[in-house]
Design a protein around this nucleic acid. Structure first.
Length: 616
RNA sequence: GGCCCCGUAGCUCAACGGAUAGAGCGUCCCCCUCCUAAGGGGAAGGUUGCAGGUUCAAGUCCUGCCGGGGUCACCA
């Protein structure tokens, strides 16, 4: 469904909005179009032709064209693009699909970009485009550089992406790492597609777990003074708190020793939390992740924000005191009917109403979270995205209910659940020491695999399926490794440019832009050009679904088409990018390679992966 | 038991409601030893867990089952 809020895909002459728009003064393709998103352009040609047919009374006037799609055919033998227009319109128009398709085909053939239009299958219209169209795409890539594919789909709307939000009670582990990577890449993607993105981290520093942190740190503080720490059941045993204990000693000396909890709990808690957050920021930085905003749960208490959010809901008759039914089927052992303050989340799609206050009258964790999301709504975001671990799946409906209620249904909340990462080494499940408190941290992963490799691999799966991560395989330099495969393609592009310069073939972008590309005619070359032309469309599909993994898959396909062409050059010298002694032909082929490299760089940029220039 | 996610080739996974469901690995066959680079080309392999339904069109949407995982009031 290529539908869009405004009905139809808008046209984005993004380069005109760009400061570098002057580049567009260069010679235009003979088709005279900007061709940023070729699929959008051709769709306009199709809908234009349909309008003309309506004008000529071949079709009824006022047909809804929203369902008309122009997309790449699954099978390349079907041509370059296909449209479902005839099938979609047959019923409302009261005509046979074939009749519509043929009339549309005749009309479209007047377009110089369209060389062939064949009716096929149940009513598809397969379009074959002029080679000049693909040449125009390559030129557009070189002109726009890594801005090629940028979209205004988001129309500058403000979107908040909340991710990681790990409890500040210890270092980040592998699971957090995947959430961090997905959130960051999604943010990049949405920014590229025209949204105004805020990356945000919600610090869960208001609950009982930070008291546990404080008590655990206090034991390390005692340890720093040469006393035996008492790491009781329920405290955090990890070694990572030893430096916290030492820091506490440095700051407080022995003034906190042998004192009751009431004397030190709040101070130690704040101190330890801050140290943990500093650690987390450093870990995120290791992965190349920078948050725009850190919001604190604790800071919500005492400001009246929680009360205000709950009162707002109460004003909508969504807060009441009542007794919940026990969970259906399985009643907990210690279940007892209990009157609580409840949020009527069932009014907004949840299965049961949810408590916002504990039996002792204090807030549940849900209450500050409601206030926090209300805060995001009031900050004027047009859309919210939360990235949670999959174990928080049960939390989705109530959170959506809260946002729906508090924004009067105005602000959509999309929640992405991140599935497990299963670690392996050499094909064997990877476990670190079983010793209590040790686990595989983000830092371990970055040290062993590197941030770029980790990021790419963690984006090679949809967020909601488990991911296998093998420390050996991800570093393998072979075509079995998708990171290497994509990076290698980029390295080869750079190799082409190097060789060209060695052969004294000028290949700066301005020269390539002005070069005659009509020599790009071989099927393997056009296949690559077609894949490049899909990039802007892929960006919009991925952004619309909040699915950054699509970028990784696309890059793999693009690299695959590039490698295929490269390999053919081994057998057919005419397909090599650098043609010794023939600067003109070389320039055209180099332009194709360079365009490939530009799109790989743009895609890796979204994934947050640094392109590798050379591999030796 | 309720809710959520997953179920596609032997394995790991793709597929914005579109045509004959695609890649990689593995298997089998053929080729190469090039300096354009970590091999290349080809083949076999499927009732998309099952059964209904909606649609011109379903792996995709709806309903009910089966299997796996997660989760289930006073933890976040």
């Amino acid at each position: 469904m290529n539908t869009h809020p405004t009905g139809g895909i808008p046209r984005f002459p993004a380069a005109r909005l760009d400061p570098g728009a002057a580049l567009w003064q260069c010679p235009r393709e003979e088709t005279g179009l900007d061709q940023m998103n070729l699929f959008a352009e051709i769709r306009l040609a199709v809908t234009g032709a349909l309008d003309a047919l309506a004008e000529d009374s071949v079709l009824p006037k006022g047909l809804d064209l929203a369902a008309v799609a122009v997309e790449p055919p699954r099978d390349a033998a079907h041509g370059d693009m296909a449209t479902n227009a005839a099938m979609v319109l047959a019923k409302p128009a009261g005509l046979q699909p074939r009749a519509i398709a043929e009339a549309l085909a005749a009309r479209l053939m007047a377009d110089p970009r369209i060389e062939g239009a064949d009716v096929a299958g149940p009513g598809f219209l397969n379009l074959r485009l002029a080679p000049a169209v693909w040449h125009g795409v390559l030129r557009a890539v070189l002109v726009s550089g890594t801005d090629y594919g940028r979209s205004t789909l988001g129309a500058g709307q403000k979107v908040n992406v909340e991710f990681v939000s790990a409890n500040p009670t210890g270092p980040m582990h592998v699971g957090h790492t995947r959430g961090a990577v997905v959130g960051d890449a999604l943010s990049n993607l949405l920014a590229f597609a025209g949204w105004n993105v805020t990356r945000e981290y919600y610090i869960n520093d208001g609950g009982a777990q930070v008291d546990v942190l404080a008590r655990s740190a206090y034991e390390r503080y005692r340890e720093a003074h040469g006393l035996e720490p008492e790491i009781r059941e329920g405290l955090y045993p990890g070694d990572y708190l030893i430096p916290v204990g030492e820091a506490l000693k440095a700051k407080y000396g022995d003034s906190l020793l042998d004192k009751g909890e009431q004397f030190w709990l709040a101070e130690v808690r704040d101190f330890a939390t801050q140290m943990m957050m500093a650690e987390i920021r450093r870990d995120l930085a290791l992965m190349g992740v920078t948050m725009d905003v850190y919001s604190s749960e604790k800071a919500l208490y005492g400001t009246g924000e929680i009360e205000a959010a709950i009162e707002t809901l109460r004003g909508m008759d969504l807060i009441y005191d009542g007794v919940l039914e026990p969970p259906k089927g399985k009643t907990p052992e210690d279940w007892e009917p209990r009157e609580q303050t409840l949020f009527r989340s069932t009014a907004h799609g949840d299965d049961v109403d949810r408590p916002v206050k504990k039996s002792d009258g204090s807030w549940t964790y849900f209450a500050p979270d409601i206030a926090y999301h209300y805060n995001k709504v009031r900050r004027g975001f047009d859309a919210l995205i939360d990235i949670f671990g999959a174990d928080h799946g049960g939390y989705v409906k109530r959170m959506k209910a809260a946002v729906s209620a508090l924004s009067n249904g105005r602000v959509p909340l999309d929640i992405k659940l991140i599935q497990l990462v299963k670690l392996y080494k050499g094909g064997e499940p990877f476990k670190m020491s079983k010793r209590a408190g040790t686990f595989v941290t983000l830092r371990d992963v970055v040290e062993q695999a590197g941030a770029d490799v980790t990021r790419f691999i963690m984006l090679t799966r949809k967020n909601d399926v488990a991911l296998d991560f093998d420390f050996d395989k991800v570093l393998e330099q072979s075509k079995d490794n998708p990171v290497f495969y994509v990076q290698y393609a980029n390295a080869r592009v750079n190799s082409v440019l190097r060789k060209a310069r060695e052969a004294r073939i000028a290949c700066d972008d301005p020269l390539l832009i002005a070069t005659d590309l009509s020599g790009i005619t071989h099927e393997a070359e056009l296949t690559l050009a077609r894949k490049i032309a899909e990039w802007p469309r892929l960006v919009e599909i991925a952004a619309r679904g909040n699915e950054p993994h699509r970028v990784a898959f696309y890059l793999y396909e693009l690299a695959s088409d590039f490698h295929a062409l490269w390999n053919r050059g081994n057998d057919e010298p005419a397909l090599r990018f650098v043609q010794e002694g023939n600067a003109a032909t070389s320039a055209a082929k180099i332009a194709l390679a360079r365009a490939t490299g530009v799109v790989i760089a743009a895609g890796l940029g979204i994934l947050g992966v640094t392109p590798v220039e050379e591999m030796r």
